[in-house]
């Protein structure tokens, strides 16, 4: 199987975040890591390759710093990497990110494309399914089990409240992977050294720009919720106070 894994670099989960000056995103000076569900997607791809042979290619879109997630994937056993490298990729919405990825892999015919079900930063859960739409491929989301069959793939999906669903898909297909589908491997120190010699193709902004349009989604303002502590005292006879409290809970707080 020839498998593509889409990986995103996101701020570390424990990193203290600071807003940027325009209040539209966070400041760049935080530590970054691999988006967790993407790490599971990579692990699943590597396991499928170990079982059935083939090739694992990893792709990311982001500034120079995001090459780190590709290096890590190569160290863990991916065969080659594609880096859509430009600061501008950070601002893209899910649709344009999917378009950019689709454009970068237009020449390749993957049997399977996997990615995490959502990113730890934006959490839109859209890039994977939009990529399937753009490439005209079937897709399934929140996958927790992949089995290759003669006709394609037998998949286990996680639904709400402890329910599962089994679906069969032909290949090629796009899957979004749930965290915990497998146990992540470590990049071995030897793997880290070998990663240096694996091919890493860079794709410039200009190469995919014709396929992009204006963002459909845009962050207007990002802010830390302001803590408010307001106490209003209601005086008067008990019946009157009770009536006002009920009114407040019903109409203002809307909790009853």
């Amino acid at each position: 199987m020839k498998i593509l894994v889409c990986i995103k670099q996101v701020p570390q989960k424990d990193a203290p975040l600071k807003l940027n000056e325009s209040g539209t995103w966070i400041r760049e000076d935080v530590s970054y890591e691999v988006n967790e569900p993407d790490a599971y997607a990579l692990e699943e791809a590597l396991r499928q390759k170990e079982k059935h042979g083939g090739e694992v290619v990893v792709i990311t879109a982001g500034p120079a710093r995001s090459q780190q997630v590709l290096r890590e994937a190569l160290a863990k056993g991916a065969d080659r990497a594609i880096h859509l490298e430009d600061d501008k990729f950070v601002q893209l919405d899910s649709t344009n990110t999917a378009r950019a990825i689709a454009a970068a892999v237009a020449e390749e015919n993957f049997d399977l494309i996997v990615t995490g079900l959502q990113s730890d930063d934006f959490g839109a859960a859209q890039t994977g399914v939009l990529l399937a739409e753009i490439l005209g491929l079937p897709h399934a989301t929140i996958i927790i089990g992949i089995e290759k069959t003669d006709s394609g793939l037998h998949l286990k999906r996680e639904l709400e409240a402890g329910h599962y669903q089994y679906v069969d898909l032909p290949t090629p297909a796009v899957l979004t992977i749930q965290s915990g589908i497998n146990k992540l491997r470590y990049a071995s120190l030897i793997g880290i050294k070998q990663a240096k010699n694996k091919p890493l193709r860079k794709v410039a902004w200009a190469e995919v720009e014709p396929k992009l349009s204006k963002n459909l989604q845009q962050i207007e303002r990002l802010y830390v919720p302001v803590k408010q502590k307001k106490t209003e005292m209601i005086d008067g006879p008990a019946a009157e106070v009770a009536r006002k409290v009920t009114e407040y809970l019903k109409n203002t707080a809307r909790v009853i």
Partner: peptide, 10 residues
């Protein structure tokens, strides 16, 4: 460098 960070993180 990247290798140094990756070794440390591993």
């Amino acid at each position: 460098n990247e290798d140094e960070r990756l070794s440390r993180d591993t």
